[in-house]
Nucleic acid binder design. Structure first.
Length: 661
RNA sequence: GCCGCCUUAGCUCAGUGGUAGAGCAGCGGUUUCGUAAACCGCAGGUCCAGGGUUCGAAUCCCUGAGGCGGCUCCA
């Protein structure tokens, strides 16, 4: 997947969109403080990992600064060396790959005879502790290039030799001499290394090895598969504990788990990568979709619907057939080749072109909740966040170049509103013209200047990723951080100067009667609804905001004699467009409350003799607050108003007790 | 796709070559209760699928499916 995704990306940003919509920034080392690594090497956002991080809000400046690196990096990298020492000791003959510091910890890639097991990890950890206890100093040495290479040849470390050879080739290419080879030695272990390190192994703080995973040498499918061990290391035990707590917490609120617990959706072998939505999950889904429709109606969008199954001719015209065919589900019928659409945009042009367009009707905003299918590799599927079947809150906006600024500003407003409903604070990443960009450079320059200007005026923090735009136009990606500080890529606003307008030959008639090209904007605010629901579930730990909770209140009659009144109250609340259930089971009230609590239902409305008599109810929130007894009518009006407000409600879980960094 | 691990009741899991288990959920009964678990009973299984080894397989081997953790933060 990696190779193909990278290819598609390199060539045409259209896969950008796919990335944005189909994957999450789940973690690799898992808890990774801050955003630093969001970009750097990986062109493919999809594969980028950013993890649970230190919480807190980030200003734009902080986001930019974060790229500087972590002060703990030398220690983390040193821990990787100590791990390599241990592995080499326990598994003689092991070939070493690389062992960098990563957010929250480190890894090292090894070629070992047999697969490593969790028991091996424990043994490696023990050996590492001994090395830390011995407090070996790290000693830097410099060797001339030839001696350095010979040293690693002699030690039978082919990957290290390859690294050195590549450095030499790179130096040759720019006419420089091969660089000096530096090694770091501690105790019995010596490794090719640029450094820096801590003074001695004793300076390495509390650590824990986390997992073993396969990893291609240099990430390339045609190179050997090495075994990568991930570890985490911190300066203090408290920090390590906090990190491990976050990991546990993240597992606890995993949306896949919550989906089962809250009876929202399930997955089945008969359709890998596609959710089966249960009644409650589908209620949530439709509630989000309809909330977004409200924004769109307010902003003058018009909703369309186009066929999911289309001839491959469409993709040949759009250029996707060459780039993306392997990610499409393709089928034959009567000697024609069709595919399930992996995106909506080309088809919307057919509606645009169905008749002559006047400058007066621009911007033309066409939204579509189209069902999309992308043939993701089986190995990358994951819950709702990486699926083969999904729907986006997609829209394509056709406009005149002079309308770009106002339109982008309007879109920022949509983002602000839609994310505030969940208590999510979005940040933006601005991708500028890539090397392979198509289209008029002057138009590019103008478009980028406008977008940058709007970004700077906006109150939403952003950072710039140079050359990360789509081939057809600059773009703005939207990220959010959830309650555990994890980064998620959700949505995207992409300016399209070329693809739809040129390839599909779109025009409108301007004031002078001339046929001229519009520009287009591809935009999705939630992105994939599947994925966004996954993010919201993990963000809230399942305690969804009141307005979108599948069951907003459960009426709890204390005894059977209160059941009729409970039904009456529920009926009244339903008349006020509230989603209400009655728990008339034979459970005791305490148990009814416990069950409602476990289902994270926002309100429990308790009904006993006193309440039935007064036609009132005693509300209890899922946070455990007992509210004053309230008459039915008043309650109905209050809750109805609360639902209409769409406030995110109180934070789902409290932060860990102490922040140590 | 590739590497490793996992798959036992609706859910969470125990069981490692000799008659398939627990808790919760479900169902039935008793109980009618004031803010996170009343009591008793019953039922529930293609041990992921297929093949093999064995007197005997949930357990060992092979193949497949699905899931989980990962798959250049370049010495």
């Amino acid at each position: 997947m990696r190779a193909s995704a990278a290819r598609a990306n390199g060539e045409g940003g259209w896969n950008r969109e796919s990335s944005n919509l189909s994957s999450c920034q789940r973690t690799r080392g898992f808890l990774i403080p801050e955003v630093h690594t969001m970009d750097e090497k990986d062109k493919d956002q999809d594969e980028q990992d950013v993890g649970l991080s230190a919480p807190a809000k980030h200003s734009a400046e902080e986001l930019l600064d974060a790229a500087a690196g972590d002060p703990l990096d030398p220690m983390r990298h040193s821990a990787a060396h100590v791990m390599a020492e241990a592995v080499l000791d326990l598994f003689p003959g092991t070939k070493l790959g690389i062992g960098p510091a990563i957010e929250g910890g480190f890894y090292y890639d090894f070629e070992v005879e047999r697969p490593l097991t969790p028991e091996d990890l424990a043994r490696i950890e023990d050996r590492m502790r001994a090395s830390v206890k011995a407090d070996h100093p790290f000693v830097r040495k410099e060797l001339d290039p030839d001696k350095g290479r010979a040293f690693f040849v002699e030690r039978d470390q082919p990957y290290k030799v390859e690294i050195l050879d590549d450095l030499r080739i790179a130096a040759d290419a720019v006419g420089e001499a091969a660089p000096v080879v530096t090694t770091y030695e501690h105790g019995p272990f010596i490794d090719l290394c640029r450094g820096p390190h801590v003074a001695s192994t004793g300076k390495i703080g509390p650590f824990k090895l986390l997992s073993v995973a396969g990893a291609y040498w240099r990430g390339r499918e045609d190179r050997p598969m090495l075994q990568r061990i991930y570890g985490t290391v911190w300066s203090t035990q408290e920090e390590l504990d906090l990190y491990l707590w976050r990991r546990t917490e993240a597992r606890r609120r995993d949306h896949r788990r919550l989906g089962v617990q809250l009876d929202l959706f399930s997955f089945h072998d008969i359709s890998p990568g596609a959710a089966f939505w249960h009644p409650k999950g589908w209620t949530l889904y439709r509630t989000l979709e309809n909330a977004m429709r409200e924004i769109q109606e307010k902003r003058g969008y018009q909703e369309i619907y186009t066929p999911p199954l289309v001839s491959k001719k469409l993709w040949e015209q759009s250029g996707h057939w060459d780039l993306y065919r392997e990610h499409m589900f393709v089928l034959e019928s009567e000697e024609q080749t069709f595919s399930l659409k992996p995106m909506n945009c080309p088809e919307s042009t057919f509606i645009y072109k169905s008749r002559m367009r006047s400058y007066r009707e621009l911007p033309l905003r066409l939204s579509e909740y189209g069902k999309l299918h992308r043939n993701e590799l089986s190995g990358v599927l994951s819950g709702l966040t990486r699926v083969r079947h999904f729907v986006t809150d997609d829209a394509h906006i056709y406009l005149r170049p002079d309308q770009i600024e106002a339109e982008i500003e309007g879109l920022f407003g949509e983002v602000r509103e839609a994310y505030a409903w969940f208590g999510l604070d979005p940040t933006f990443t601005f991708g500028t013209r890539p090397d392979k960009a198509l289209g008029d450079p002057a138009l590019w320059d103008r478009a980028e200047a406008i977008m940058r200007d709007v970004l700077e005026r906006s109150d939403i923090p952003f950072r710039v990723k140079d050359k990360d735009g789509a081939f057809y136009g600059p773009k703005i990606d939207i990220q959010v951080e959830d309650a555990l500080g994890r980064q998620w890529q959700t949505a995207t606003i992409q300016l399209d100067l070329v693809m739809l307008p040129e390839r599909f030959d779109l025009t409108y008639v301007d004031e002078n009667g001339e046929h001229v090209r519009p520009v287009a904007i591809h935009r999705a605010i939630y992105g994939s609804l599947e994925r966004f629901i996954g993010v919201v579930l993990e963000h809230t730990g399942g305690a969804l905001p009141f307005w979108c909770s599948p069951v907003q209140a459960v009426v709890v009659p204390i005894a059977d004699r209160h059941n009729d009144a409970a039904q009456e109250l529920a009926a009244l609340l339903r008349e006020h467009h509230l989603r209400v259930e009655v728990d008339d089971s034979s459970n005791r009230m305490q148990n009814k409350i416990r069950l409602a609590q476990e289902q994270k239902i926002p309100y429990m409305l308790v009904l006993g003799d006193r309440e039935v008599e007064a036609r009132s109810a005693a509300p209890r929130t899922r946070e455990g607050e007992q509210q004053p007894v309230t008459p039915w009518r008043e309650l109905a009006h209050r809750l109805e108003a609360e639902a209409r407000e769409r406030s995110p409600g109180p934070p789902a879980i409290q932060r860990p007790p102490v922040e140590t960094r």
